[in-house]
Structure formats: structure tokens, C-alpha cells
Design a protein around this nucleic acid. Sequence first.
DNA 1: GCACCTGCCTAATAGCTTTAGGCAAATTCG
DNA 2: CGAATTTGCCTAAAGCTATTAGGCAGGTGC
Lengths: 194, 194
Amino acid sequence: MARVGLTRERLVRAGAELADEVGFDQVTVSELARRFDVKVASLYSHVRNSDDLKSGIALLALEELADRGAAALAGRAGKDALTALANVYRDYAREHPGRYSAAQWRLTPEEAAASAGGRHAGMTRAILRGYDLTEPDQTHAVRLLGSVFHGYVSLELAGGFSHSAPDSQESWSRILDALDALLRNWPAAQPPTR
Amino acid sequence: MARVGLTRERLVRAGAELADEVGFDQVTVSELARRFDVKVASLYSHVRNSDDLKSGIALLALEELADRGAAALAGRAGKDALTALANVYRDYAREHPGRYSAAQWRLTPEEAAASAGGRHAGMTRAILRGYDLTEPDQTHAVRLLGSVFHGYVSLELAGGFSHSAPDSQESWSRILDALDALLRNWPAAQPPTR
DNA sequence: GCACCTGCCTAATAGCTTTAGGCAAATTCG
DNA sequence: CGAATTTGCCTAAAGCTATTAGGCAGGTGC
């Protein structure tokens, strides 16, 4: 009965790797036990249950993403910052698809509050400092950026943009150009069409 | 042994309802059998397996969405069409969250080819006829719209925009205003910054 | 060197998935 | 109308995941 040295920390980390290999929803307590060459029940001293493990992976992913974002934003402003943060999300999702899916995991309110979620919103807001937007337009813009980043990355990951020209990288660049232009020239509220 | 009259059709439809009630990933062959008051094994004559059932629900959702989209687009153009299609996605996701998730289910290439996926791309392209875009910009714009629609709806469904002002509806309107403005004034490719 | 605690184990229950083979209801046909 | 066939739902069984309870031994502290 050699002790393997299990830890919540190590389990979550291994879970994240597993997610990247086989997909987040294929992450299973059993498979994790197998990887540590340990019986399943042994994991339950370190992790409350399967959902708890998944939450751990989600929190890890959010944290890693936020760290990368902060590093990318340092010293940048305007379109430069916009592109940098956008690429952080896209690159992370391509490098770590399982972790990226994990970041969408529905956390409990307490977990969410303790998560890096706030940092993400903050970073997007930081980008907007390079543009001339005041509330509530700033919030609208934050939501738009979040939607585009997440939406594009999800669709790309799902294979939506492969197998058709032009290639995804080009669309991505042009979409960022377009967002930059839009933020520099954010339209006032339109009156409803008759 | 009264015959209940199971059918792939009925199973898929019931699966879709189940998805809306408990979430797409909680849709289970067992639960479905329970609802029809039938033994689990009985379903396997109508559905190849669990994944097949899920694919069926996904195809149904894509079809319903495309139908709604087509109806909404009829007789509309420009921003009017843009808003109409966007609202189709958002409203559908709010009315049928489980089905909406199902629409994200990864289909096999054959299933995808037979799906309503093509109609969706076509509808977004149709919207762009009201704007002055030529290829490849049109494709970039299609991808942007897809990203915003899907991204916003996903984030909203995940609860991302609740509990904070301004309310989601307002952001949605303003984002559609912004997209309309952007499409009317789509920027040329920007030279990379130095 | 002893007691304790902690970490991993065995055992057991329960749910979901999937396949194989059986019987009876519905349908087809003489 | 009744026989033959098809088809629909069933029982049985195996395999996998999740989760809990209780046990034994290895490492730790005195």
C-alpha cells in the first residue's frame, strides 16, 4: 500500500490535463484514479465528489486565463490591448480545449464569487479605457466583447470555421479590426424603427 | 404488455422536452424510459444508443431554429432582418434552454451535412444582402454575427448578465444597434501596428 | 517505542448503458 | 377467419461510474 501522495491540488491539475486530452465532460473520477494507479474511493478524501472536482478544474482554468490576460495586458492599450486579450482567450482555448470548456462550468454562487471571474470582467473594462466610452455604454461594450470572444472561440473549437475559406485566422484579425473600429465609434442608441 | 407506441420521433421529441426541463446533459435513456413507463431496453429498438438520441434532439433543435429564422426573415431586410434573426436565437434559447444546448452537440460529419446547419449560415448571409459587403468580408461578417449571437446567448443563459445593471435586454438592443452600424460601415483590413 | 492520525484499501449500494434472447400483440396473407 | 410472420416491449445480465462505510498500515509526534 504505497502512498502515492494524492492531493486536491494534484487531482485538479491531473483532471485539467485529462480534460484537455479527452474533453471536459469525459473527465471522470474513475479515470483519474486509474491514472494515479489508485482505487476510486481513495480520491474521495481529497475531493468531495465529481462536481467538486470539476469545479476545481473550472477555477483553475479561470485563474490561468486571468493570469495570462493580465500578463498580456501589461503595458498595452487601445487596439493593441484588445488584440492581446482576445488572443489570450483564443490561444488558451486552442492549447487547452478541455480547460476552456471547464471555464464554462456552472459554478455555485460561492465558488463564482471566489473565482477569477471578476478579474476577467475587470480586464475587459481595462481595455475600454483606451476608448471613449462612458456608462452604461461601457457595460454594453464589455458584454459585446465577452460575447464575441467566447462565441468565436466556441464556434471555432466546435469546428465551425474549418473546411471553408477564408481561414479562421483571417476572419479573427478582421473581426478584431472591426471591433476596434466599432469601439472608436460607438453609436448612440437608435430610435426603434417605426 | 400493452404497447405504448414508441417511435424514434416521439422519443426525440420527449427527449427535447426533458432537455428543457432538466438540462441537455441530464437527458438520459433511463429517464426517458421512465417517462414512457417502459423498460429501458425497449428504447434501443428505436434509437441506436444514447448519443444517437442526443443527435436526434440536436437535429430537431437546429431544424426548429432554422424554421423560426426563416419565418422571421420573411419580408424583412437590413437592420430589421438583423434584429429579427438575432431575436430568434435569443428567444429560442430562453424558451428552450435544453434544446439550445442540444444545438451545440457535436454531430458526426454525416449528421452535420444532413442538418439544418446550412440553412443557418444561409440566413445570416441573407441578412448581409441588406448591407454592402463583398467576399471575403461577407464571410468575416457572417462569422462575427454567429459569434455574437451564440456568445451573447450562451453567456446570458449561464447567468452572466443577471444581477448587474443595466439589464440584459438593454445591452442586447444596443449591441444590435452597434452591429448594424458596424455592418453599414465595415472597415477595410488594418495594417498591423508597426 | 508507542499511540495516533491519515491515506489508501476492500466492500457494498445504486444508477446508467448496452446487448441478447423471449413472448405476445399486431399485421399480413391464404 | 385463422395461420404465419413481423414487430414491440420484456427479462436477464454484464460493465462502467459515483458514492459511502469501515478497516488496516505507514508515517508522525511524543
